[in-house]
């Protein structure tokens, strides 16, 4: 086997190290956070009525190959994020084979200690979410609707879905966990990326819980509004 270029060796070693794994996790985490924010802002158009939301959906669909580039890119980001998380979790479990008899913690948070658990539950939810709203397997009854202009009736699909309380409940619980995950992850990412400037200290402290709160409020508003009839099917 031919020897690889030394630069690649160092870079590969760096990315496989403890800090490298954390680097990959934080960069992909920030990209996923940006996606979550964009996704939420797009969906909030449900409050602007059927025409607005269906037009937005049709526009996304019209992107064609570009849409697939984004989807595959997201998938790749998820794979790296989860791969790094598995690596970190395995190393951390191995690093303390015998637990303390008297467990204690001074300033770690519930969110921080349960990242793997919240992440796995969110992953399970994501699979359901894609089957529900993107592929249409779980609820074909409200997936194949068409509005009066012939566009996919995303608005009615969303309202009919969230009007069923079990579905709304799944979305509410999952999005709270998304918030818990982000509240630790978003701040943690900037520490891992080496942000030290005092002016940027907020990124490592309040930013995570703050952005997580906004995302939870935004994402919960949609299923709850549909469930309680604030957002209704077009007359």
């Amino acid at each position: 086997m031919a020897a690889r270029k030394p630069r690649m060796n160092r870079l590969a070693r760096t990315l496989q190290s403890s800090i490298g794994s954390k680097f990959l996790m934080s960069v992909t985490g920030i990209l996923l956070l940006l996606f979550v924010i964009a996704h939420m802002l797009g969906n909030l158009q449900v409050f602007a009525g059927p025409d607005q939301l269906n037009a937005y959906a049709a526009k996304l669909q019209s992107l064609g190959p570009l849409l697939w580039v984004v989807r595959l890119g997201l998938l790749a980001i998820f794979v790296v994020h989860i791969g790094a998380a598995i690596r970190v979790t395995n190393s951390n479990r191995a690093a303390r084979p015998v637990a303390y008899v008297y467990p204690g913690s001074v300033q770690s948070t519930f969110a921080g200690r349960t990242m793997m658990m919240s992440g796995l539950i969110v992953l399970a939810f994501l699979i359901y979410h894609v089957l529900h709203f993107t592929v249409g397997t779980t609820n074909p009854d409200h997936f194949h609707l068409v509005d009066e202009t012939g566009r996919h009736d995303v608005y009615s699909m969303v309202v009919m879905g969230f009007s069923q309380w079990p579905i709304a409940l799944v979305y509410v619980v999952a999005n709270i966990l998304v918030g818990v995950h982000i509240s630790h992850g978003a701040s943690s990412a900037f520490q891992t990326l080496g942000v030290t400037h005092p002016r940027l200290a907020f990124l490592k402290q309040g930013f995570g819980p703050g952005i997580a709160t906004l995302i939870v409020v935004g994402n919960l508003s949609m299923p709850l509004a549909c469930l309680f009839g604030l957002v209704q099917l077009p007359a």
């Binding site: 760096t14 403890s18 951390n92 690093a95 913690s105 001074v106 770690s108």
Partner: peptide, 23 residues
Amino acid sequence: LAMVEQMDKEGFGYCTNHYECEA
């Protein structure tokens, strides 16, 4: 580079920013 490599080799875990150490 050398110190982090040795740290990993010794079997210490990876930092996930709980900051218990600082406390």
